[in-house]
């Protein structure tokens, strides 16, 4: 147990260094960094303009008010920060690492290879801008909906954000792991990546069958629907149970597939 805690602590310290190094690496190119920041700030305003669009149009989806829709969109933008800022870059690079034998040196390090290969790079400018935009939208909607600020609502929402982050990490990593067998999986990855945008709007806009598939078969809707559904008291108990299970199932699936795939790793000739 002591060893496990020590290992977790070590991995957290190393992850903090990965984030720091990614940021320093971005900052080494001053003009590009400032340019990126400016562009992201521009996007921030574009994303915040969603607020105006939602209220001006006064649109209501399957009984969801504009405030509730804003809560969904804010959650989606916040989780996009985690996915695009922390995971996507690594996911995209994984297949070239496998194809070019770039996992060789990582394999010899006394830390988890999956951790090293899938969390090493981050885009913190994108992460920060999306997270700020998303959380501002969530805060506006939260206030307008009169949702109480207490341990259950805030803690519960935060907990669901963590679950959603784990689900998005695992779900979008799974197809990339197939590269251990297929070497190039860009076609599969592009299809699955486009699934991310299914979260753009509340799942209520889809019919019941698609909703069930999106929750239980390809659990894409779990990501940005469950946190707002929880605070809006619109979560059926089966979804509550599923939200406890699904991150564990997906993490286990990723772990097993990763280990199996690694046996297939053939490096590359030097």
């Amino acid at each position: 147990m002591y060893n496990l805690v020590r290992e977790i602590k070590k991995h957290i310290v190393i992850y903090a260094l990965f984030l720091k190094n990614s940021l320093i690496a971005q900052m080494e190119y001053r003009f590009n960094f400032i340019g990126n920041m400016s562009m992201e700030v521009g996007y921030l305003f574009v994303k915040l303009s969603y607020v105006i669009v939602v209220y001006r149009s006064g649109v209501s989806i399957n009984g969801l008010s504009p405030d509730e829709i804003l809560l969904f969109i804010g959650t989606f933008v916040t989780l996009t920060a985690a996915y695009a800022g922390l995971f996507m870059l690594n996911n995209f690079r994984l297949r070239s690492k496998i194809r070019d034998g770039d996992l060789d040196l990582l394999l010899t390090k006394p830390v988890s290879l999956q951790f090293m290969a899938t969390l090493r790079q981050a885009d913190l400018t994108l992460f920060t801008v999306d997270a700020v935009a998303g959380l501002v939208m969530v805060a506006i909607a939260w206030g307008r909906l009169g949702i109480p600020v207490n341990l259950i609502t805030v803690g519960g929402y935060g907990g669901f954000l963590i679950i959603s982050t784990v689900v998005s990490y695992s779900l979008f990593l799974l197809p990339q792991i197939l590269s251990f067998w297929l070497v190039n999986t860009s076609a599969i990855a592009e299809v699955t990546d486009s699934f991310w945008d299914f979260n753009n709007m509340p799942m209520d806009i889809y019919n019941r069958w698609i909703q069930q598939i999106g929750v239980f078969v390809l659990p894409i809707f779990v990501i940005s629907n469950f946190p707002p559904m929880f605070v809006l008291h619109k979560m059926p108990s089966i979804y509550l149970a599923w939200s406890a299970l699904i991150p564990l199932i997906l993490l286990l699936a990723v772990r097993l597939l990763w280990k199996q795939g690694l046996k297939n790793y053939s490096s590359a000739s030097s």
């Binding site: 070590k10 260094l17 080494e28 060789d104 040196l105 390090k109 006394p110 030097s270």
Partner: peptide, 27 residues
């Protein structure tokens, strides 16, 4: 292991950042 054709240092960072990372990796 040192491979002449592969590198472990972060390309865009000064080497001391990568070395410090190895310090943490190897405890």
């Amino acid at each position: 292991i040192v491979m002449g054709q592969k590198n472990q240092l972060w390309w865009d960072l000064p080497a001391n950042e990568s070395l410090f990372l190895n310090k943490c990796i190897y405890e």
